[in-house]
Nucleic acid binder design. Structure first.
Lengths: 235, 235
DNA sequence: ACAGTATTTATCCAACGGGTTAATTTCTCC
DNA sequence: GGAGAAATTAACCCGTTGGATAAATACTGT
């Protein structure tokens, strides 16, 4: 009784509320896409009233854009924390692939949001000056790493850093974002631990083999006796 | 007058109608996703009445599944038409990459549909026994090509064919399906002809370099004089 | 303590959207 | 040539949904 009095009817918490709204919106948009997302569900998940969304962020589209900007902001921030410049080039590339893979694994909503935004042909992203100014540090990182690798003789090729960046992202992104349909097609779970480990090893092997020309050392199997090669490959 | 009499009010054409409905539905679902698609728009695009959709195909979900099944059917059919078994292994892989790239370019709705279905975690695909039974011939193709390549000494590695298949698809798929956001992020059009040519060359170079270990021959730039290497790379 | 403002709640509503019902027209086969 | 089935049209139904309005409640500074 006395307690009920202390917690009157509600407390003010604008910042907390805004964060809860954005978090709820992120979940809702990534789970259902833009058209499939329900404003009422976002409000409910945020423990709020629907009116609050409009008060603190804006209408559905503005809400969506805020979520998208937040997602880019987050990955850019983590990317900046990765220091690859001083590693030897093959190790730097390996770390880059591992980071990308793990980031996507840890943030599946990011993948969904990008898929959704691309379905919309980046209509919203184009309007966001904020995101346009958030350049990934990876392109320059890759450029210098590749240059160093070529100079040191580790790498055989001076590959376009943008292409390489896209390729590294692609190898992880597609596997994870399309794992649902791929798992059905192949009739096996691509997301169990064994499959994930194999995928990471494959991606690292593929990219490093291409750059260094040392296929043998990077994929498990080399030009070993054929019988053994056949045995080791995982299928 | 006499003519107007001949074309009374409408003609019967169940097969044609069904096809027009499915084509319209494909466009609508790929342009707007499942939740964003509008049944009325599909009807209008098909030059039909909304009731016709339900009469000839079913409700929205069934319509969507029919479209999805049609999309898989089409790509599997074209895949079967590709005969790579008798080519020498590097050439076979090159053709495989080119086919994948061009198929995705020619059928952007296929990409969108897959994105949409993955956003839905393959909920509909799982219910389709039809699609589950449509195995891609590429996995076995790749398996034998890789085996031949290893035996002949063209390839240094016996890579898992499923992994390679996914990787080849990934390199094209991600680039194209995410070209809208990537173009904004990089501030350049990834779909103009020059960019597309470069992308195809990059993908072929990457995969073949990894398999053969001959990076130099495959990417444009080798361990040439550094100044030249820097000049040639595109960025 | 109280006036003014920021924050939150409780309703409401008009448009939309998927789906249905019932009537109408064309075709086919006897 | 007409009866019955197949195909198509037109109109309607009703729950949902994004968004708006207005009133209530909790802070803040003075």
């Amino acid at each position: 009784m006395a307690k009920a009095k202390r917690t009157l009817k509600w407390q003010r918490d604008p910042e907390g509320m805004r964060l809860r709204i954005l978090e709820a919106a992120k979940q809702e948009f990534s789970a259902h896409g833009l058209a499939g997302a329900r404003v009422d569900r976002i409000a409910a998940k945020a423990g709020a009233n629907k009116r609050m969304l409009y008060y603190h962020v804006g209408n559905k589209d503005e809400l969506y854009l805020a979520v998208l900007e937040g997602a880019y902001d987050k990955i850019r921030s983590e990317e900046r924390g990765l220091d690859l410049e001083h590693l030897d080039p093959p190790e730097a590339i390996r770390r880059l692939i591992e980071f990308t893979w793990n980031y996507f694994l840890r943030n599946p909503e990011f993948l969904s949001l990008l898929q959704t935004e691309n379905l919309a042909r980046a209509k919203h992203l184009k309007k966001s000056t904020k995101v346009k100014s958030m350049h990934s540090p990876f392109v320059e990182m890759i450029r210098t790493v590749v240059r160093r690798g070529v100079d040191s003789g580790d790498f055989q090729v001076a590959v376009d850093p943008v292409q390489l960046y896209i390729s590294i992202a692609a190898l992880s992104f597609f596997y994870l974002s399309n794992s649902a349909t791929l798992s059905v097609i192949f009739g096996r779970d691509l997301l169990d631990n064994k499959a994930k480990d194999e995928r990471l090893a494959h991606m690292i092997g593929l990219v490093l083999a291409a750059l260094t020309g040392q296929s043998a050392a990077l994929f498990e199997v080399a030009k070993a006796p054929k019988s053994r090669a056949a045995a080791v490959q995982t299928v």
